[in-house]
Amino acid sequence: MYKIIDEKLGLASCRLSDLTIQQVNCILNQFEDNAPIDTLTLFYDKRADIVVLNSDSKDFDIYLGLAEAFLKADRKKAQEFVDKIPFECGETLEVLRDAKRARKIKEELRINGHQGIVGCNGTYLRDVFNEIIRKSVGFSHTMILMSQAYTYGVIQGKREERARRKGGATHA
């Protein structure tokens, strides 16, 4: 359905007539009220993890160049794009930024999936996690728990690194 432009960058194109009704409705729901579909420059297909440019757009080449440069850019360069780009391209940059963020999250989850499980019953970490949960009673937001567990993991990582440098053992 999409014509691949750059597989490594996850860039493709398609004509508006190639989109399904469901795709068009989904895209229109993200537009400001009464915006016509033919003003679409690009969108991010999260399921396929691909940025799709509207090949019918009169400014296709401009948006292709922008997408390629933005997706190749590191965080500092990407922010320079945001700061220098004309206001009219703001929504396009938001889509590209969202795509980069979704890809970063996907990569982090892939890496995390290769890590061992910690905090099993009977372990010291399980006791620490249970205490974090106990102290958080009354908080309704899971992010607080996740943040505290993450921070604890960072602390443990620093402790392990210090112990490794000293040649000592760690407790986890």
Rank of each mutant, 00 (worst) to 15 (best):
N54W: 00
E32I: 06
V51T: 04
K72D: 13
N34L: 04
L64W: 12
A67N: 01
K58F: 08
N34D: 05
D49S: 09
D59C: 09
K46M: 08
D61G: 04
D56M: 03
I62V: 05
D49R: 10
V52K: 02
V51H: 02
G65Y: 04
K46W: 08
R47E: 15
K77C: 07
I37Y: 02
A78P: 03
A78T: 07
L40H: 12
S55K: 02
L40V: 13
D74R: 12
K76A: 08
D45Y: 11
D61R: 14
E68N: 05
P36A: 13
S55V: 07
I37L: 02
L66P: 01
F70Q: 03
V51P: 00
K58R: 14
P36R: 15
E80H: 05
L71G: 07
L53F: 08
I62Q: 10
G65M: 06
D56E: 08
E80C: 04
K77M: 11
I62T: 14
A35K: 15
Y44Q: 00
I62E: 05
Y63E: 12
S57G: 07
I37V: 02
E68S: 04
F43W: 01
S57Y: 04
R47Q: 14
K72E: 14
T39H: 14
Y63F: 15
A78N: 06
L53H: 04
K77P: 05
N54S: 08
S55H: 09
F70Y: 06
E32P: 06
L71C: 09
I62R: 14
Y63D: 08
F60N: 02
Q79Y: 07
R75T: 13
L40M: 15
P36S: 13
Y44L: 01
D38Q: 14
S57K: 06
Y63I: 12
D61P: 05
A78D: 04
L42K: 00
L64C: 13
L42F: 02
K58P: 01
F43M: 03
T41H: 15
A48F: 09
S57P: 00
D74C: 07
A67F: 02
S57H: 03
D74T: 11
D45F: 03
L53N: 03
V52Y: 01
L42C: 11
A35R: 15
L42G: 00
D33K: 15
A69D: 13
D45R: 13
E32F: 07
D56S: 05
L64Y: 14
A35G: 07
T41R: 15
L40D: 14
I50M: 11
D74Q: 11
K72I: 08
T39S: 15
S55E: 15
K77Y: 06
D56K: 04
K46L: 07
L66F: 05
D33F: 09
D56R: 03
L40T: 10
N54K: 08
L66D: 00
A35T: 15
T41E: 14
D38Y: 10
P36G: 08
E80K: 06
A67M: 01
V51F: 07
L64V: 09
L40I: 12
L40W: 12
D56G: 05
D45P: 05
V51D: 01
N54R: 02
T41A: 15
K72P: 06
E32D: 12
I37K: 00
N54I: 03
R47I: 12
Y63W: 14
A48C: 11
D45N: 15
R75V: 10
A73F: 13
P36F: 09
K76W: 08
V52F: 02
